[in-house]
């Protein structure tokens, strides 16, 4: 075991860890934003909305994330340059970069898995509470904002830590489309130093630390949010 390279690559390792965190937080944030309507329309929406939502969740949960990522990056990425005027448009710098593709792919994946969980969460809110809201004259939107959504999110909170750890564990896939997050940095180090195990072990350590932080953070959050009485 030789660790002489750690100092030399420390800035890159830190930058990689930061990129991993950015990717993770953006995917979870945007994924949850999408998951809420996805779950809601499956419980209460008309068929024209609930069927596509269900199809989306099934398709994205039923295919490997790596395929989705490559489909977006290589598939769509190979089509974009042929669209007229896109090279001069405002979007081109983003479409040329790999990071946005990774964010979109991870976001859609989180949305599909969390959408399914949100569906259960919305469904499991006790009927009596919703009826109480209607009885006190709340509009449908008020009911959603004041009772249904907060209660559903409360139900989901314990599963969110697990989902976040799973997403963290999927982020190394981004390295396959040239997003140099921590795993990608590790690959560079392995290629440049010819050390096989040490960079991998160091990176494994980083992921274990990040997992620990997520678990502690949610533990802290769960203590603060009032418990669902079921």
């Amino acid at each position: 075991m030789e660790w002489y390279w750690v100092g030399e690559y420390a800035p890159k390792l830190l930058a990689g860890t930061w990129l991993t965190i950015q990717l993770l937080v953006m995917a979870i944030f945007f994924g949850m934003l999408l998951a809420i309507p996805l779950g809601l329309v499956q419980v209460t929406g008309p068929r024209i909305l609930s069927l596509p939502a269900k199809a989306f969740c099934t398709a994205f949960r039923g295919t490997p994330l790596l395929i989705q990522l490559w489909l977006l990056y290589y598939g769509l990425g190979s089509i974009f340059p042929y669209i007229d005027g896109i090279r001069t448009s405002f979007f081109w710098p983003y479409l040329r970069d790999a990071f946005p593709y990774a964010v979109v792919a991870f976001t859609l994946s989180v949305a599909a898995y969390e959408g399914e969980i949100m569906r259960g969460a919305f469904k499991n809110v006790p009927k009596g509470e919703l009826e109480a809201g209607i009885a006190s004259g709340m509009s449908r939107f008020q009911l959603l904002r004041r009772i249904w959504l907060p209660r559903a999110l409360q139900n989901v909170l314990p599963t969110l830590a697990g989902e976040m750890v799973l997403t963290l564990k999927a982020t190394p896939l981004a390295a396959t489309i040239t997003v140099y997050e921590i795993f990608g940095v590790g690959t560079i180090i392995r290629q440049e130093t010819y050390r096989i195990y040490e960079p991998l072990l160091l990176i494994a350590g980083v992921y274990i630390c990040l997992t620990g932080v997520i678990v502690l953070l949610f533990h802290w959050l769960e203590v603060r949010v009032p418990k669902a009485s079921g």
Partner: peptide, 29 residues
């Protein structure tokens, strides 16, 4: 997945091949 990537890279039908692979995985699921 790797076979698909090789096929896509060789033929340049990226979108089509990855969609086919996704459909195969989905069928298995």
């Amino acid at each position: 997945t790797l076979t698909t990537r090789v096929a896509a890279g060789t033929t340049r039908y990226y979108l089509e091949f990855f969609l086919i692979a996704a459909a195969i995985y989905l069928t298995v699921t």
